[in-house]
Design a protein around this nucleic acid. Sequence first.
DNA 1: CGCACACTTGAACCCCCTCAACCCAAGTGG
DNA 2: CCACTTGGGTTGAGGGGGTTCAAGTGTGCG
Lengths: 250, 250
Amino acid sequence: MVAQAPQTVIVRALGGLEACARCGARGQSVCSAIDDADLGKLGSIAVTRDFARGQSFVEEGEPATDFFNITQGTAKLYKMLPDGRQQITGFARTGHFLGLAASNTYGFSAEAVEPVRACRFSRQRFRGLMEEFPALERRLLDSACHELVIAQEHVLLLGRKTARERLASFLMTQRPPAAPCSGPGSDAANLIHLPMPRRDIADYLGLTIETISRTLGALKADRLIAVPNQTEVVILDAIRLQELAGGERE
Amino acid sequence: MVAQAPQTVIVRALGGLEACARCGARGQSVCSAIDDADLGKLGSIAVTRDFARGQSFVEEGEPATDFFNITQGTAKLYKMLPDGRQQITGFARTGHFLGLAASNTYGFSAEAVEPVRACRFSRQRFRGLMEEFPALERRLLDSACHELVIAQEHVLLLGRKTARERLASFLMTQRPPAAPCSGPGSDAANLIHLPMPRRDIADYLGLTIETISRTLGALKADRLIAVPNQTEVVILDAIRLQELAGGERE
DNA sequence: CGCACACTTGAACCCCCTCAACCCAAGTGG
DNA sequence: CCACTTGGGTTGAGGGGGTTCAAGTGTGCG
């Protein structure tokens, strides 16, 4: 059962003609495949929804009725085993397109790890739009290929990297995207915000929370990173951390 | 550098008009998106190649110039770390479409684990065909989504399953596809041929060859499987093996 | 026969897990 | 204002699943 937000949380089905044009996430998402003139058609089938931290909006095994596009916040995508073991397959941030599935049911669950705003599209209507705008389909294929590459990198991490290397890899991928205005030595690129708890980092890296804690401590002791508080990490030596992430034996 | 087959091994650029129509892999591959009348156009840009066991035909990091479609045999797709650690991301069999990449370089390597025959398509020309036949692009998107689901299942396996569960999962996925004529209790569905050596199974499951050997022995001792020879496994108790693969604690 | 190669088996080790205690900050209520 | 609770994070001690290292066992092939 997909958790439903209370009716009051439905933000707006209104303003379909403008919502998309004003959307800050547009440039980072598949929606940019549709140009301004036709944006109304996209807006008319989109419903904006807000999800509180901990709220889930896709459940593995349920009928795959909708696509989602994250416009704000972070969600975790995960699979579970019957005895409760959890594996997070990825974190979805602004611009991430969700809901591609091979069958008629979702193959994963999605839950907000910090407040999330997302556009929901009926699968059926979105498919209609794809027929009308081939560029949208092309963009979706690109997106799927990109996710495939990420997933294969994740497979390498889980299958062959040590705890230290996994954490280094994770931190490198969590670096904020380089702002075009900032120089290469910018500090901003080395400040990492971690909206998710240790439990989720562990479930993403195939480790336990204790190992996350200890390994963070070890990286800190080696002066590769600093940990000012629980939700932030500063990269002190990006070069060595990158080598570690890449699996170079030290 | 992509290993080149000797010139003599190029099978035929001839018969483009008929090769695809007679291709046994057509029904299982993306090529079925193109109907008989237009099949010549597909054939005209396809080159059939044979690769011997151990020969590699895609190298991680090299420019992604081609797509491949496996029409016979089995190839392993893998990534490597600088110190030689290897992680196999999947085995490509008949009908598997290869070469989707996010960037202009391949994100993985491919090597034949048994003699492979494949169709090679220039990326550029194949893109042209996609413009002409939207059904081909749709089919490719479906294929990418399917691979994504497989990859996420692989992530779950590597992140959270025990060696026993990993091997059980692997064996269940290696079962031959159910032949439509055979009944449900058919023995054929329980006879597994493993063309790849233990080393490759280990590198796929994130384990070592010793653990593969020992765990196969344990499953055999528990009467879940039989191992008549090195390349074959017989599933004796599909139900319990499936439970084990699914992560039910015993 | 003898070599090569893949696989199996055994013993010791180690990285990470498990279990448990502890810390700390943020409520909550009297 | 402080006692109490709660939940996330850290730290410590001990154990175990899988690795490592090493030897042994086929098995095909010249």
